[in-house]
Computed example of a mutant assay.
Amino acid sequence: TGNAVYRDAIDRIKNDVSSGTQLQASMRQQDIFPVMAVQLTAIGEESGNLDEMLTKVAEHYEAVVDDMVDNLTALMEPMIMAVLGVLVGGLIIAMYLPIFQMGQVVG
């Protein structure tokens, strides 16, 4: 991963699992993984369906990230509209102000 904390934790987990520790126990020791991910990993190890459980964990967190991105985008839309409104308004004023000033000089 690009995150040094997770990379180091994954390296420690890899070493622990290769020495015989359960994956969920090693994940719990690292103290950086969400509780739900550790619990689903434990269920997967006990039931023999670790790959399915890890897939469910990945799908859940992908959905959470997608929801967060959608919410952030929805929050940013009004701000973007306001900035565009100020820019367009500034351009209109910059175009018409010289015309109005010439009308006052002539009149």
Rank of each mutant, 00 (worst) to 15 (best):
residue 37 A to H: 04
residue 104 Q to G: 11
residue 51 D to C: 06
residue 94 A to Q: 11
residue 6 Y to G: 00
residue 43 I to Y: 00
residue 22 Q to L: 13
residue 12 R to F: 02
residue 59 E to K: 08
residue 88 V to I: 15
residue 57 V to E: 10
residue 13 I to S: 06
residue 18 S to L: 11
residue 19 S to I: 02
residue 20 G to V: 07
residue 80 I to K: 09
residue 31 D to E: 10
residue 93 I to D: 06
residue 36 M to E: 06
residue 93 I to A: 15
residue 17 V to Q: 04
residue 106 V to M: 12
residue 34 P to E: 08
residue 12 R to T: 08
residue 102 M to T: 15
residue 92 I to M: 11
residue 67 D to Y: 13
residue 17 V to P: 05
residue 71 N to F: 13
residue 107 G to R: 10
residue 63 A to L: 02
residue 9 A to H: 03
residue 48 G to V: 07
residue 42 A to K: 15
residue 19 S to R: 09
residue 41 T to N: 01
residue 16 D to K: 01
residue 75 L to I: 12
residue 28 R to A: 07
residue 87 L to F: 12
residue 47 S to Q: 03
residue 28 R to K: 15
residue 48 G to D: 02
residue 80 I to P: 08
residue 38 V to T: 04
residue 80 I to T: 12
residue 54 L to D: 05
residue 84 L to C: 12
residue 89 G to E: 02
residue 17 V to M: 04
residue 7 R to A: 13
residue 103 G to R: 08
residue 29 Q to Y: 03
residue 40 L to C: 12
residue 74 A to C: 06
residue 73 T to M: 06
residue 50 L to C: 06
residue 4 A to K: 13
residue 37 A to K: 01
residue 41 T to Q: 05
residue 66 D to S: 13
residue 34 P to A: 01
residue 45 E to F: 14
residue 19 S to F: 13
residue 48 G to S: 02
residue 10 I to G: 03
residue 9 A to N: 11
residue 45 E to M: 10
residue 99 I to L: 09
residue 33 F to P: 01
residue 20 G to K: 01
residue 72 L to K: 08
residue 85 G to I: 07
residue 34 P to N: 02
residue 29 Q to F: 07
residue 36 M to G: 09
residue 2 G to H: 03
residue 33 F to N: 01
residue 2 G to C: 02
residue 74 A to R: 10
residue 47 S to D: 05
residue 99 I to W: 01
residue 35 V to W: 00
residue 68 M to E: 15
residue 96 Y to G: 07
residue 92 I to K: 09
residue 20 G to I: 05
residue 43 I to S: 09
residue 38 V to H: 04
residue 36 M to V: 14
residue 28 R to Y: 09
residue 57 V to Y: 09
residue 93 I to M: 14
residue 26 S to T: 00
residue 34 P to Y: 05
residue 63 A to R: 09
residue 6 Y to I: 05
residue 103 G to I: 11
residue 35 V to S: 02
residue 36 M to S: 13
residue 89 G to S: 09
residue 107 G to D: 08
residue 93 I to P: 10
residue 47 S to I: 11
residue 65 V to G: 05
residue 19 S to N: 10
residue 50 L to P: 05
residue 104 Q to Y: 12
residue 83 V to Y: 11
residue 7 R to G: 10
residue 104 Q to N: 13
residue 11 D to P: 01
residue 21 T to P: 01
residue 17 V to D: 02
residue 82 A to D: 08
residue 13 I to N: 03
residue 103 G to A: 12
residue 4 A to R: 11
residue 48 G to H: 01
residue 94 A to F: 08
residue 26 S to Y: 00
residue 80 I to E: 07
residue 56 K to G: 03
residue 1 T to N: 00
residue 85 G to F: 02
residue 61 Y to W: 02
residue 43 I to G: 11
residue 72 L to Y: 05
residue 39 Q to R: 15
residue 55 T to P: 08
residue 104 Q to F: 14
residue 96 Y to K: 04
residue 9 A to T: 10
residue 64 V to I: 12
residue 62 E to M: 05
residue 38 V to I: 00
residue 81 M to E: 00
residue 82 A to Q: 10
residue 8 D to K: 06
residue 8 D to E: 11
residue 36 M to I: 15
residue 42 A to Y: 12
residue 58 A to F: 01
residue 43 I to C: 08
residue 99 I to A: 04
residue 54 L to T: 03
residue 8 D to A: 09
residue 104 Q to D: 09
residue 49 N to T: 13
residue 7 R to K: 04
residue 68 M to T: 14
